Amino acid sequence: MNAVDVIVRRWKVDTDSTVPPFEQIRLRILDLAAAGALAVGTRLPSVRSLATDLGVAANTVARAYRELEQAGIVVTAGRSGTAVASGGDRIGAQVAEAADVFAGVVKDLGMPGAKALAIVAAALDRDSVR
């Protein structure tokens, strides 16, 4: 499931709420990141993409992202987009970095993602048995 699916799944901006839409979006992403539904390193959808999916103006999503970045919840790297930050979680940051390297190797070798994930799951299971 991609980040857009996670963010918009069974949720929408409440236009009747006294809470501004940007704040609703900010809180939604914050809650999902805190719960682990958006893991460290998860790339968030582009501002325009999420705005379209939520039916709000792009500036609304941009403000939510900007406030999340100022709080250290997400990081924005220009054209690379916006991703969930480690938030001081060194272990999460190291695992996210290793996952990026692993994903690069998987793509370079042309292995299907599902097969690579099955290999990782098996490796994790083996380590828990030892």
Rank of each mutant, 00 (worst) to 15 (best):
M1F: 14
N2T: 14
N2M: 12
N2H: 12
A3L: 05
V4Y: 09
V4F: 08
D5M: 14
I7A: 03
I7R: 07
R9Y: 09
R10Q: 14
K12M: 13
V13C: 04
V13M: 03
V13E: 08
D14Y: 05
D16M: 14
S17A: 15
S17W: 10
T18Q: 05
V19T: 15
V19L: 13
V19C: 08
P20Y: 02
P20S: 04
F22L: 00
E23Y: 03
I25N: 00
R26T: 00
R26I: 01
L27F: 07
D31H: 06
D31Y: 06
D31A: 12
L32H: 04
A33V: 09
A34P: 01
A34L: 06
A34E: 11
A34R: 13
G36T: 04
A37P: 00
A37G: 07
A37D: 15
A37I: 04
A39S: 14
V40P: 07
V40C: 11
G41N: 10
R43G: 11
R43P: 07
P45N: 08
V47G: 07
R48F: 08
A51P: 00
A51F: 00
T52Q: 14
D53L: 11
L54S: 02
L54I: 03
A58E: 14
N59D: 15
N59I: 04
T60S: 07
T60K: 02
V61D: 00
V61M: 01
V61E: 01
A62D: 10
A62Y: 06
R63Y: 04
A64N: 02
Y65L: 06
R66F: 05
E67P: 00
L68Q: 00
L68E: 01
E69M: 08
E69P: 02
A71E: 04
I73N: 03
V75D: 15
A77G: 02
A77D: 14
R79D: 11
S80W: 09
S80K: 15
G81S: 12
A83K: 13
A83E: 12
V84N: 06
S86H: 10
G88V: 06
G88E: 02
D89C: 10
D89W: 12
I91K: 13
I91L: 15
I91G: 10
G92D: 10
A93D: 12
A93W: 08
Q94L: 14
A99P: 03
A99L: 11
A99W: 05
D100R: 12
F102G: 01
A103L: 09
G104C: 05
G104H: 01
V105P: 00
V106G: 01
K107D: 01
K107T: 03
D108N: 07
D108W: 03
G110W: 08
G110A: 08
M111Y: 08
M111E: 04
P112T: 11
P112S: 12
G113C: 05
A118M: 09
I119Q: 09
V120W: 03
A122G: 06
A123V: 09
A123M: 13
A123R: 10
L124N: 11
D127N: 10
V129L: 15
V129T: 11
V129E: 09
R130S: 08
